[in-house]
């Protein structure tokens, strides 16, 4: 009987400590939560092609409201202009000239959206690669799908959506709305002015927001990763998860970040 009582007393004591720990010490606020495991795939799979074929498409914006680019194993450069013309320079990359003859970039227009992708339909990456250098009129909606390469966006004005994997993504000086879904690689979003939706896995990312009228409202979830930077965030750390929220200014523009197995460095410029 004595042992039974002692066992129950120890269990009761541990239960009290357990409840107190759950109630008062978890989540621990302000802990950075450095992961002990790091898994990452660097974008090293960009093939070294020896031949290339370039096609240039120039279209007046007219009734076109959005642009869709689908590429891989190449480099995408995108920027906004004050003009009204859409200029797409598409480069197909391959091993030999003969091989390239089988492929072409296909342009199609549907419901105000113009899109560019590799043709014919049976064409497959990584047999060949596809790069883009694009100038779009300011205010246009652009979607870029790209894998195994790099995406570079500079001085963009409008609505931008990036769907990338195994790529190095750099966006500098964006005014408008930005949505990024990325897996593997690295992401740098610098001097961003406007709402941001960012989903990321297995990569390191840096976000630098420019101060804007109305300010920002932050919702950040990081699973199995780390969250650093000077953004005004209230952090809650639970096991391998960091949930953070906060506002800057009036908190008008939403900044929603979901990251897993990576690091997020979130800053606001001065």
């Amino acid at each position: 009987m004595k042992i039974r009582r002692i066992t129950l007393a120890i269990l009761a004591l541990l239960t009290v400590l357990f409840v107190a720990d759950m109630r008062y010490f978890q989540p621990r606020r302000g802990r950075s939560g450095q992961p002990s495991v790091r898994f990452q795939v660097e974008p090293s799979r960009v093939a070294h092609f020896h031949a290339e074929k370039t096609q240039v498409f120039t279209r007046p914006q007219g009734s076109l409201s959005s642009l869709m680019l689908s590429g891989a194993l190449g480099h995408v450069e995108l920027r906004s202009t004050d003009g009204t013309e859409l200029v797409v320079r598409a480069t197909i990359l391959g091993e030999t000239e003969e091989e390239l003859a089988r492929f072409e970039v296909v342009e199609s227009v549907s419901n105000g959206e113009i899109s560019y992708k590799l043709g014919p339909q049976t064409a497959q990456f990584p047999e060949v690669g596809l790069s883009f250098a694009v100038e779009v009129p300011a205010g246009m909606e652009v979607t870029v799908k790209h894998s195994y390469g790099s995406v570079e966006v500079e001085d963009f004005v409008g609505f931008l959506r990036l769907l990338t994997s195994f790529s190095q993504v750099t966006v500098t000086g964006l005014q408008g709305s930005l949505s990024v879904e990325n897996q593997f690689g690295s992401v740098e979003l610098l001097d961003i002015s406007g709402p941001l939706a960012f989903e990321d896995a297995f990569s390191n990312s840096t976000v630098l927001l420019s101060p804007v009228d109305g300010g920002y409202n932050f919702q950040v979830d990081v699973t199995n990763g780390s969250l650093t930077g000077n953004a005004p965030l209230e952090k809650e750390v639970r096991q391998n998860m960091i949930k953070a929220q906060g506002t800057h200014g009036e908190g008008v523009h939403p900044v929603v970040i979901e990251s897993s197995f990576g690091s997020v460095n979130l800053n606001i410029g001065r």
């Binding site: 002990s36 495991v37 790091r38 898994f39 990452q40 795939v41 660097e42 974008p43 090293s44 799979r45």
Partner: peptide, 14 residues
Amino acid sequence: LDSGIVFEWHPAGQ
């Protein structure tokens, strides 16, 4: 498999 794979473990936490 891929020269870009990085898989590291710091055992202190375990």
